[in-house]
Design a protein around this nucleic acid. Structure first.
Length: 622
DNA sequence: CTAGGGTTAG
């Protein structure tokens, strides 16, 4: 049983019940029959059902519960089912559980119907694991599950921490009870499997085995690909869906938009926006939120703001997405203004909103504002800062060059620093010349994460900047001996409705022959304009000339060269990168924007860089 | 009484 979260409810139940018990004892003494006459009982039942129909608050629910007990309807399945669904819509599950499983109810009267309602309510609650317990209780009571039971059960399992443990068992149960061919059950199976890590294969197996699909099957599969980090596959499946003639609805579009946000595919984002208009897909709140988020993450922050302004209603998610979007683009002042506007609109910020506003302060170098907001979390809003908030603060100080303050902050944090925090500090040490500190932090970090390639890259960069070349080549040796690989840099570029992928050092691909020639030519032109390669960015222990070649193979340079070759003069080039942009590429891109007269928008791991006329919007803080 | 969907440090 879940703990009763509302103490006075317990009192109420007990008070009313003991009154009821007294009556029952009196009845027993007078040898009266337990059941009232049928018509009276039906009247009481009707009365309670209509009472529950008008329940729109928890106090009213408690009143109804008192009536229910007074009228002796605590074992009436119809009333209990209604009570369960009403209390779950008011998120007061403890009410229905304490009623259903109180010592005064008669569980032997419960039917599958009631259990389904209960399992559904639990599946939608934060106690979703209890749905599984009540499913097994149902079986132990020899009640047969029906085709309605499995969608609820599978949904509860999908939301559990390790769905792969119970998911296949539930699938087997669905087969055993002959409901695994049901369209609803199969659609929920797709969802459940795609919630297991690496489960998209099983999800796809279910999907491919379906003789009949509908829009829900496709949306579940597309959403499953997005959840598994396979956004390209999600978009491909969306196109296949259109070919197959199944009409996408607002849920499908939301899933595709999150793939779009992940890929940073602006053309696709704009296409979906017009698709929604053209097909008159209802612009629900989640759809507008997904659209606004996708446009911001694809680089069209002003388009995102336009969506936000035009929204008929906004939730805290809408506000947070705008704040995050502005933060990512380095527009910290505006992000803070939107945060304040949100408060004026009467919305109380939550912990996610604070992550947005803190990261906005950090990306825009607004140290005092960041300090203020961090302090206000607890003092004004009673929100305990989480590690993400502390991470923002460490980043805030680090970017501003206040490495000591960052270090002090880490030492005074209420929780243990994680590797993300350490890596933030190490980057700060490198940028602001604190080599000894950077080295000692990295050595400690390597003890915790000896197989994490990016830690070695960080340490190597620290050594390179302090010109300790022997130390640097030592790292290289350790890495190759242990078989530790650095994550390859990868840049995406949308061209002619397709996503082109460029991977660092991918020189063996003959189809990019002209791209490599272009990179060489770019290098020559940039040098004439005054560009000097930042050789310290090269991890390899090789001579200077080879280092320059290595830099030429960085994925964003390949992508930019491709774009310069293929796209019309002066059109904006948009690139999405998986890692933080390196110092050399950052410098080179500034030069390219001037020499080739192109606006270049790069989304890296952390934020957007808008390059124009030889300058970058991040003002070289990133 | 059925299914699929929106924001989260670097």
């Amino acid at each position: 049983m879940i703990p009763n979260k509302i103490p006075y409810l317990t009192l109420q139940v007990h008070g009313v019940s003991s009154e009821h018990q007294r009556r029952r004892r009196r009845r027993r003494r007078r040898r009266e029959p337990m059941n009232k006459s049928n018509s009276k009982r039906r009247a009481a039942e009707q009365h309670l059902l209509s009472l529950l129909d008008t329940c729109d608050s928890i106090p009213k629910l408690h009143q109804a519960q008192a009536h229910l007990l007074k009228l002796g309807l605590h074992s009436n399945p119809l009333v209990l089912t209604k009570f369960t669904s009403t209390s779950s819509s008011l998120s007061s599950l403890s009410s229905s559980l304490s009623l259903l499983f109180s010592p005064f109810s008669s569980p032997h009267l419960y039917d599958s119907f009631l259990f389904n309602t209960l399992i559904r309510s639990l599946a939608h609650s934060s106690f979703n694991l209890l749905a599984i317990s009540y499913f097994s209780l149902m079986l132990r009571r020899r009640l047969l599950p029906n085709k309605f039971t499995f969608p609820f059960l599978l949904k509860a399992i999908a939301a559990a921490p390790s769905p792969h443990l119970l998911g296949p068992q539930a699938h087997a149960a669905a087969i055993k009870f002959t409901f695994a061919d049901d369209l609803f059950v199969r659609n929920t199976l797709i969802h459940m499997y795609s919630c297991c890590s690496g489960g998209f294969h099983s999800a796809r197996k279910v999907f491919d085995g379906m003789p009949k699909t509908n829009v829900v099957s496709w949306s579940a599969m597309i959403g499953g690909y997005v959840r598994s980090g396979l956004s390209n596959e999600a978009v491909a499946l969306f196109r296949e869906m259109q070919v197959s003639g199944v009409r996408p609805d607002e849920v499908t579009v939301v899933a595709v938009l999150s793939a779009c946000a992940d890929l940073g595919a602006l053309e696709l984002g704009h296409w979906i926006k017009s698709f929604v208009e053209r097909e008159r897909i209802p612009k629900t709140l989640p759809l507008c939120n997904a659209l606004l988020d996708a446009l911001a993450k694809c680089g069209d922050i002003d388009g995102a703001l336009k969506v936000f302004v035009e929204m008929p209603e906004r939730s805290i998610v809408s506000w947070t997405s705008v704040i995050d979007g502005l933060a990512m683009h380095g527009r910290g002042r505006e992000a803070v203004a939107v945060f304040e506007e949100m408060r004026t609109a009467g919305i109380v910020p939550d912990d996610v909103a604070f992550i947005g506003v803190l990261s906005a302060c950090s990306h825009a170098g607004m140290v005092d504002d960041g300090r203020h907001y961090f302090a206000s979390m607890k003092s004004e809003f009673g929100i305990e800062p989480k590690i993400q908030h502390c991470g923002c603060m460490v980043d805030l100080f680090s970017r501003a060059g206040m490495v000591e303050q960052a270090m002090e902050f880490v030492q005074s944090m209420p929780m243990r620093p994680n590797p993300v925090i350490w890596r933030t500090l190490i980057s700060a040490c490198r940028v602001h010349g604190k080599f000894e500190l950077g080295e000692s932090i990295t050595r400690n970090l390597l003890k915790d994460e000896p197989m994490h390639g990016s830690n070695y890259v960080l340490l190597s960069n620290v050594y390179a900047l302090s010109r300790r070349w022997e130390k640097k080549s030592e790292i290289r040796k350790v890495m190759s001996k242990q078989g530790i690989k650095k994550v390859p840099g990868c840049s995406l570029l949308e061209f002619n409705g397709e996503i082109h992928e460029f991977i660092a050092g991918d020189e063996l691909h003959s189809k990019y022959r002209d791209v490599f020639d272009m990179v060489e030519e770019m290098g020559r032109k940039l040098k004439l304009a005054g560009y000097v390669p930042v050789l310290s960015e090269v991890l390899l222990d090789i001579d200077e000339e080879d280092k320059e070649d290595a830099l030429h193979q960085h994925s964003e340079k390949l992508a930019i060269a491709f774009a310069l070759l293929k796209t019309a003069p002066r059109t904006t080039i948009r690139i999405v990168k998986n890692l933080r942009v390196c110092a050399d590429c950052h410098l080179a891109t500034k030069f390219i924007s001037k020499v080739y007269d192109r606006d270049i928008v790069v989304r890296d791991r952390n934020r957007f860089h808008h390059f124009k006329d030889g300058l970058c919007s991040c003002r070289d803080f990133w």
